[in-house]
Computed example of a mutant assay.
Amino acid sequence: MLTLDIHHSPSPDFQLALKTQVPCQGVTAVCGHSGSGKTSLLRLIAGLDRSVNADISLNQRVLQDSQQFVAPERRRIGYVFQDARLFSHLTVEQNIRYGLKRSKTPMDSEQQQALFTVLELSPLLSRRVEKLSGGEQQRVAIARALVANPDLLLMDEPLAAIDATHKAELLTYLQQLFRWLEIPVLYVTHALAEVAQLADQLLVLDHGKLIHHGTPEAWVSAQYSSDEKEQNPAVIWRGTVVGIEPEWQMIQLEIGEANINEINSTGRPRLSLVTDSIADAPLTGSVQRVLIKARDVSISLDTASISVASSIQNRLPMTISQIENQAPYSLLTLQAGDLTLYSMITRKSCHQLQLASGMTVMAQIKATAIIG
């Protein structure tokens, strides 16, 4: 358990104040707008910054309180920064081995080879780092932090400095790594898509205050992406993988908590979504989270059948609970049992379909639009 009781003022106009406990298992994402205190939190945990009003312990081992301060190199905490921060005069292997120098209990050679396999670093070990792409350099930085076998891994927006093509590639590596890894991870990001794909728990900071601590799917609010001017609310749904279609490179999810042996009798909605690689697809019976944005949900009045002649794979009967006009759009809030979904359509479409609260409609979601 990571226990935090922090009142830290790195500047006169900002204070980081939070008190919580974070389970030391899986991936805990830390989100919030720029300046909310995400990096300050990680630096305090790592011991890179020091505060007179911070009590921090990891697995009942005190890292800092009013009486003592454990130096960063003795905390057994790995740190991956936004930029890789590698030594340009060293090879990939030499950079990784550097992470072993201060570790008393590093990964053994078998574990290291497994790590290199997951991150696909074996062919790169003899190369100089200046000849690597940004994504490759970041994979090396991750390996360097992990070979020391830390009790906790801190990752501060590790995809922020990566271009879109390599970002998607590195995200796939992270998904594989976190499935294999038993080390708990604190992962800072502002991207809701990364939260949906990676996180088991979520901390949300706002102006230094903790405003949410729970599962990602429990946190549903309007988010803005950096390349969009308009509001695009999204939801995170949790599902169970119930089928894999190698021929079409797709997987089937049963949405909601479910026993894999009771799927056929539950009546829970199913979603089809594409996967970049069948070889890396989650196993049947495993839990998968998906992110669905409002602009990727269309509406149909044809509620007679879920199966119609359409290229859209996912059609879910849902009830309109609210319509909010945000010219030139209409934002629909849809409900089906305990599931909530948003749909952003034009006001013209809303008028032509004569949509109103209480109506049952078909929510249509492209399989290619689901992030998971």
Score class of each variant (00 low, 15 high):
P106F: 10
Y79H: 08
A145D: 09
Q68P: 00
T39I: 14
H33C: 10
I162S: 04
D151G: 10
F116G: 04
I142Y: 02
K131C: 11
N149M: 11
A141H: 07
K101H: 11
K19T: 15
R144A: 05
Q67M: 07
L124F: 13
Q113G: 05
E136C: 01
C24A: 05
R75Q: 02
C31M: 15
A54I: 11
V70S: 02
M107E: 09
E130T: 13
L115I: 11
A114P: 08
G135A: 05
T39Y: 12
L121S: 02
E110Q: 15
K101E: 07
G78V: 06
A46L: 06
S122E: 15
R75Y: 02
R85Q: 13
A71Y: 04
A71L: 07
Q25D: 09
A160V: 10
E73W: 07
T105N: 15
R43K: 15
V22A: 00
A29L: 02
A71S: 09
L159R: 06
D151F: 00
S88H: 12
S36C: 13
A84D: 08
V140E: 05
T91V: 02
T39F: 13
Y98L: 11
R61F: 01
Y98T: 02
A54T: 10
F81V: 03
P123F: 11
I162W: 04
I56L: 01
Y79D: 03
G135K: 03
G32H: 12
E136P: 01
Q68I: 03
G35Y: 13
R102K: 09
R127W: 08
V70A: 02
L44V: 10
V80G: 05
M155H: 07
Q112R: 15
S109M: 14
L154K: 00
H89W: 09
R74S: 11
I162H: 01
Q137A: 05
G32I: 11
N59H: 09
D55L: 13
I77L: 05
S57T: 03
E73L: 03
R102D: 07
N149S: 14
L152F: 00
S133T: 12
S109K: 15
A148L: 06
D55G: 07
L48V: 10
Q137G: 10
D55Q: 14
G26Y: 02
S34H: 11
L44F: 12
A114L: 15
Y79I: 11
P72R: 05
A141D: 08
R75N: 03
Q21G: 05
G37P: 14
N149A: 14
R61S: 09
